[in-house]
Design a protein around this nucleic acid. Sequence first.
DNA 1: TGTAATATTTACCAGACGGTAAAAAAATGC
DNA 2: GCATTTTTTTACCGTCTGGTAAATATTACA
Lengths: 210, 210
Amino acid sequence: MSNPRSAKTKKRTRIQQENELKILNSALEVFSQHGFRGSTVDQIAEMSDMSKPNLLYYFNSKEAIIRILIDQLLDKWLDPLRKINPDGEPLSEIQSYMRRKLEMSRDFPRESRLFANEILQGAPRVQDELRDLKKLVDEKAQVITSWIRAGKLAKCDPYHLIFSIWATTQHYADFDVQVKAVLGPKLSGPGRFEDAARFLDHLYINGLKP
Amino acid sequence: MSNPRSAKTKKRTRIQQENELKILNSALEVFSQHGFRGSTVDQIAEMSDMSKPNLLYYFNSKEAIIRILIDQLLDKWLDPLRKINPDGEPLSEIQSYMRRKLEMSRDFPRESRLFANEILQGAPRVQDELRDLKKLVDEKAQVITSWIRAGKLAKCDPYHLIFSIWATTQHYADFDVQVKAVLGPKLSGPGRFEDAARFLDHLYINGLKP
DNA sequence: TGTAATATTTACCAGACGGTAAAAAAATGC
DNA sequence: GCATTTTTTTACCGTCTGGTAAATATTACA
């Protein structure tokens, strides 16, 4: 068999497990920074302390690697949205969702940037995933609408509400260099996520009116 | 002289002006969709109805083209922020700024995506510009702080306020495919920018509290 | 209309890229 | 310790890419 991953259910050896993990980790690093076409297999191989042919022994192609990364990503990415509880207190559900998304930007910035790269470049590889995404968002938009009807939330477009939460939270991962450049060395510590959370809490609940 | 652009102040011929414009326009299209390394000179040349050597007669290198695009971009990009008037009515100044940024996303999505690509990939070419950006943001953050002190605005972090406006507005350009996929064909018309503006107006002024 | 300057084409090149074949080396199981 | 499987290395290949040299065609202007 040419490739260990193509074996259907055969148990993986220790070396396989280690190397596949190492490769995927390097690939995430490289792809998230340079995008797919901007990355080279050699870069990923070098970061994995491996020769290019050796890497291609574990994964058939560059394309195969990013496919796996994307599949792993989307599930994790949608989890915070799934966790929104229709029976919870609306304002605090929104708030928790925002916080969960912000934590993802803090803890998984590479995943965020990989996804951003894909979308930015026209999402050629995530068409199916976008369909799933729409389904889930439609569902949650209905929940939000029901909250508004019940008078628990200000009247607003639920889709754009969700967009704004995505945008504001992912910004801290995707535009990290810009955020750091603007905040300067003093304010760029890990505390910036706390500051962001505090600001967004206030914005989403009370707005800017004094 | 090998290249018409390298001539210091010599007046440009009609053909030069036309072709340079055509090339820069194609380059913006290509770079904004594929990023720098993901784009090829041939792509840009083809889109300009030109051979690659002919294109390189007008611009010395691929790098030179993106440099010019970036220089043109930043100025335009910071304009809405510059226009914030310290003597205006705070809430409506914020609102106008948000609207101006949203209009830029609507009218110049390629510029937005080009910039996003640069930042996402570590901003290797925009270090100087980020310094200018910081200066301007520091200045406007002070204005916002003075508004808060005067009791004209809710107490909040001015930097994160600016970040949130950038994020929410640029989202509609940078993540356009995702926005369209989620909204579906019916809601994806040009009217989505009006819907977004309405939502953001309400969010930034009143928040979500019913 | 002739001529100098500008613009375009043709034919390349050297290096990087994704990927393969096959042999050598290392690990595994008996 | 030996045979089998797994892993790694070496040596490639065809294609694409950014860029160049030089010849040709076109334009502008006196």
